[in-house]
Write a protein that binds this DNA or RNA. Structure first.
Lengths: 338, 338
DNA sequence: TTGTATGCGTTATCAT
DNA sequence: ATGATAACGCATACAA
């Protein structure tokens, strides 16, 4: 590996001069500047990021801690983060961690000295308290609302979105509305459940425990949950799945069971993944601005980094939007909303 | 930030001893070892990764260069990479780069000194030559087959998969088979096209230029392409989409146009994303072992790192598998394959 | 305008 | 078994 010393020797100057030229700092004669640049290019010199960050105390890298990354949801969040970070000259160090105490701690340790700040996605309720690691490292907690104020946090307005969707189903005349819930002990899942309950209560509809089934946020979970709900008597007339993947699984289960959607059963999801509008029927859902979520998290983190973590803590919530398509029976037409 | 010096001072020893204890290197008395560990824990000492890697010349980090990361395909690849890397004590530095010369160079520069090796996904044909940066850094090129031997490379067997699927459609009696192609100048897209052509030629079916339409690998592209294909006369009886996203978009377009699948038109995709089996009808496709692709890329890279890049270059191809479901009309039953 | 010297936090080498 | 010190690659305060 060619270092700054090699360049200095080859150009017949000191390393300080090379550094000055390559960073545009300090005065330097146009002539030596040109020569050094030529040599650096010829030798294919690339500064060693680790060494540089050791002395500048900046890595220009943001750590991203994720529980697990499958599904379109995560890749959209990452896109939003990366676009925003890159625009400000930052890179992403992405790490998946099992959302338990050990996993998060290990990941945070590994990031020490490699990142200027961390975006931690920990929807798992058990884990949130563990982020309260007193540290100078700015942290933005995504999709969870830890109690302390050691970190900024950014959440989705699951409650309002869920309540709006269930309220919409109620306004269509549904009284027996089932919910396929997400993973246990998950913040988003819990909040969506809370919105569901609240909407029912507001309409004076008694909650029926048999109408709430776990789906674990996966297609297969939604598939199984839908089959289970079809066996409940009296049968529900609408199913609200806490995310689109489960809604799509449910859709498939109903189709196989000969249950027509939306005529015999209304279906709604949550997230509005790109595929939702291409389903048959197109899926009514709650749009989560996924890309913006990632982008905003990075903005907040960069703010914390610039202020060396001495800023007033953010506590932000991005709002959702009701997207009514055909699967809930409100729209008679056949073309999907483009 | 608490450093190794703070721990040493607090424990009344030298930094060398602290380092020995924390790394388990060299001899140390049980007593001082215990004391140091206690102090380090109390002070919440975490070693500075950057400083450490400067002297050990190991970062335990793998760079991942991606063209863009949306859709389930990329998140699955990343999962495979991260699982494998983490199991070997490595982390992932993920960077998206515009697949042009400047983008790739910038990204590679930013990784210098921060990673032990790079997995570069550059399906864009223009960019492949640019990876020929003479360097000691081990590189695995994913989904592209650069000519030089400066890097290992790992590709999908697009050709065989595509040929098998088109061959299957032919065996079902189809003669006018359309293809919705992927992005222009993309390796995967080009290879899938090549397989399509080869299957037709082998069956002595003349290629019809009107039956090949660009879809750009997106749902909306597939949607538009399908509408375009419906206008071709004589109309094709089967559509092979070069990935599942486009197939799903096409499915939606046909449904709106009142064209029944598979009765009036057979449809097939490529990739076998999780959602494929939940479509209506379940989508016939070519399974790409996406997770394994990422996992294998990291394995190859780690091998290169261990041998300091002085190894014989790998040139590997992962094979695909034909997945026949209902959308191509070969399976009469109604339940999806689970 | 340029060079010398110091330090960033850590590991490694050589004494003791 | 432990300590002092050099070295990693770079940026920068200070001297020239």
């Amino acid at each position: 590996m060619v270092t700054i010393k090699d360049v200095a020797r080859e150009a017949g100057v000191s390393v300080a001069t090379v550094s000055r030229v390559l960073n545009g700092s300090g005065p330097v004669s146009a002539q030596t500047g040109e020569r050094i640049r030529e040599v650096a290019g010829r030798l294919r010199y690339v500064p060693h990021g680790g060494a540089r960050s050791l002395i500048t105390r900046k890595t220009h890298t943001l750590g991203v801690l994720l529980p697990d990354l499958y599904g379109e949801f995560f890749s959209e969040v990452i896109r939003g983060m990366d676009d925003t970070a890159q625009r400000q000259g930052f890179h992403l160090l992405i790490s998946r961690a099992h959302a338990d105490k050990h996993g998060i701690e290990t990941a945070m340790r590994a990031m020490r000295g490699r990142v200027d700040g961390v975006v931690a996605m920990s929807p798992d309720l058990d884990a949130e308290s563990l982020l309260n690691v007193p540290s100078m490292l700015p942290v933005v907690v995504l999709c969870s609302a830890p109690r302390g104020d050691s970190a900024d946090c950014l959440t989705i307005d699951n409650y309002a979105g869920s309540k709006a969707m269930v309220g919409h189903l109620i306004s269509l005349g549904h009284k027996r509305i089932a919910i396929i819930t997400g993973a246990a002990r998950n913040y988003d899942a819990a909040e969506r459940m809370r919105g569901y309950r609240s909407a029912l209560r507001q309409a004076a509809i008694a909650a029926d425990g048999a109408l709430a089934v776990q789906g674990g946020f996966t297609e297969s979970g939604g598939y199984a949950a839908a089959l289970q709900l079809l066996a409940v008597t009296p049968r529900p007339t609408a199913i609200f799945a806490a995310n689109d993947s489960m809604a799509i699984g449910a859709l498939s289960a109903l189709r196989e069971s000969g249950v027509r959607v939306p005529e015999d059963m209304a279906i709604a999801g949550f997230d509005d993944i790109p595929l939702a509008r291409y389903m048959d029927p197109p899926l009514s859902t709650v749009r989560v601005p996924t890309y913006e979520l990632g982008a905003r998290a990075v903005e907040i983190l960069l703010h914390g980094i610039r202020n060396q973590n001495h800023h007033a803590r953010h506590r932000e919530r991005v709002s959702t939007e009701l997207v009514v398509r055909r699967s809930c029976g409100a729209v008679p037409g056949r073309s999907p909303q483009r």
